[in-house]
Design a protein around this nucleic acid. Structure first.
Lengths: 377, 377
DNA sequence: TCCGATTTGTTCGTATGTATG
DNA sequence: GCATACATACGAACAAATCGG
């Protein structure tokens, strides 16, 4: 697809799908498009011609070319009664997502839905391509794990377009603030708070927190980290907060923690980690320095993933509902679809967002310093 | 309709409908039509273009323009000309499958395919339901990880039906012997052989092998285990072979290994495991008995999964290509689809099965007994 | 109601690229 | 390697419909 007319074609198609052109709206004239793309009229006409035959535009001689109303067209043309759901995640194979996907898939396939999966690799451009693909087809519902949810999203228009076409969608794990969509998330502030308070209650005062901050999960957990310090009146050294983003995840947090461990003023006794995956990496660092867990340092993870029970140190961790969350997402989207098909008057029956209150799995990566004091003294 | 191109259009259409042009027959070339109707090439192309988009003709560059077979057309291009691939796995979230799926998905989405996933939960009945669903829809290709591949499969007829409908499919990780399908697999016999020989070469003689035997991967690895003993003339105590199936995987192998460890005649120095997942479970058992790895016992895993580097003992393990295999599967299925669409005579261009020759990642869960002997004596 | 500017529709010519046999 | 056939792209001209003044 590197021909000029196909470039013009996809550019126009994007503008329709992101809502720049709304149904019945006149698009730029052929001569304007010629200038805009620096191509001949013939090329512009080829592109438009294709989009007309595929039902994205219609032409009126003497008047102009207009954006078609695909929502009405669908009714005529969709004979396909197949039940389809799309799941968009950042990474398919990472960590807890497979469990979430499994939970959703098992529930959805029970109901006879077919599940298509897409992964954005945490890239907004890829997310855009996927949304375009989804808008082109007919999906009954979409489950989305947002890409880089802590940042403002350049594809908001596509989500708004989903709403315009009344395609139900929900977000899991996090959501784009601007949209206020239906969502299935954890209370990550509470989670971060619980992690930190757990250590504080065990007598830890000098605690390092390490958070991934390109998704809202991380920023919220950090917020909880701060909140716990504030509540218990424990002063927080700014140096004790480490932040990183997805691209840096295999290097930066480890390096920063090493720096702290190696600094002379180091008196750290506790470490709050963004997730279990990070804990496992930290454990390697600590083993090399023969720092014992939990004797010398207490560590607390997040997600209660398989990784929590895989090492010689069994991790204390915040429990993520994982496949439970996937199932809830599936149920919610199923409800939304049903609601849509009988949206005559059922005002009372409504679908709500779910916020999981986190719980903690206490194992033995954290140590009670209070008891130690008593025995030592 | 008195424009020139519409005259050409209806003239051509008439010739199709009155049988002058029969399906698959080449129609006059563009230059011939120019002379015939006394119009420019552009006009001819306009007419043909319209007939192509409405499904009366199809063009092949360098070859010509042909009359379409409208009886079959309905089935081919009905509704969406969307490109769809199905992936059927046993478990979506287990272990190495997410990596395989990711590899396949990334490659397939690059090529504009949409990926639908289905999981059988290692259940033949569920597999049947999925195959029925797939047969009723139009998928361009299917990637299958067989369910309980070591047993004879009750759904063979469905697979044969896929062949009859000439829907390309391939199998990964294992395959049903009866079908002899295209497949992307490891040489698991070699893998099991390498695991065992590695220990033998390190001086181990009393080795326990623990294999899952409801898939061919497990039975083949066991075969390699036996083969290595035979090759090196090491007698094999039948009690040193533990087998289990998927349902028993969280209990039986562990219990059997504990039995062996607790028996008086225990002189085990090496343990060959079906996969890394099992190794991790065994490590827990050993820790409780303060049996050290690799000092007291050497363990070797399979798959080189994340679990291999997650514990304090870094596992020696056979390397599974994982996402590489997913990509290869994607490429193969893409090739098959292309081949199918141009199946005129290209006999030489053929798609073949892939067998990965295993390699080994040597870490420190295995110990060299030879060296010890030398220093001890 | 007519005019003129704008916009799409039809048609021609020409050139170069790429796949097929 | 070469001729043939379709693919892409540029330019130009005139026709037909629309719309504001």
């Amino acid at each position: 697809m590197e021909t000029k007319y196909s470039m013009v074609k996809s550019a126009l198609k994007s503008k329709i799908m992101d809502g720049t052109y709304t149904p019945y709206q006149k698009i730029s004239s052929e001569s304007e498009l010629m200038k805009e793309f620096g191509v001949s009229r013939h090329t512009v006409r080829l592109a438009i011609g294709d989009l007309v035959t595929t039902g994205w535009l219609y032409r009126e001689q003497g008047s102009g070319t207009f954006c078609a109303d695909r929502s009405k067209m669908n009714e005529n043309q969709r004979q396909n009664s197949q039940k389809n759901i799309a799941i968009i995640t950042t990474y398919i194979s990472d960590y807890i997502f497979p469990s979430i996907i499994r939970g959703a898939e098992s529930r959805l396939s029970q109901e006879g839905y077919q599940v298509s999966i897409f992964s954005t690799n945490n890239d907004h451009e890829k997310e855009r391509q996927i949304l375009e693909k989804i808008l082109t087809q007919q999906f009954d519902g979409i489950i989305i794990e947002p890409t880089k949810s802590a940042f403002s999203n350049p594809n908001i228009n596509y989500y708004l377009n989903l709403e315009r076409l009344s395609t139900p969608y929900i977000m899991i794990n996090a959501y784009y603030d601007e949209l206020e969509p239906l969502s299935i998330v954890m209370d990550d502030v509470k989670g971060g708070f619980m992690q930190t308070e757990h250590l504080i209650k065990l007598g830890h005062i000098d605690i390092v927190g390490c958070f991934k901050t390109d998704d809202t999960q991380g920023t919220k957990r950090m917020k909880g980290f701060l909140k716990a310090h504030r509540k218990h009146g424990i002063p927080l050294n700014p140096k004790n907060i480490i932040t990183y983003n997805t691209e840096e995840k295999s290097t930066k947090p480890i390096e920063e923690i090493e720096k702290i461990l190696d600094s002379k003023s180091n008196s750290i006794t506790g470490l709050v980690c963004y997730n279990d995956e990070l804990v496992i990496k930290v454990l390697d660092v600590l083993r090399r320095r023969t720092i014992r867990v939990p004797e010398d340092i207490s560590i607390i993870g997040y997600d209660d993933s398989v990784l929590a029970e895989v090492s010689e140190v069994k991790l204390t961790s915040i429990i993520h509902p994982k496949s439970e969350m996937g199932k809830a997402a599936a149920n919610t989207i199923i409800d939304l679809i049903k609601l849509k098909s009988v949206n005559k008057k059922n005002e009372q029956h409504q679908v709500d967002s779910v916020v999981y209150t986190p719980e903690m799995a206490i194992r033995n990566s954290t140590k009670d310093l209070n008891q130690q004091k008593i025995t030592t003294q």
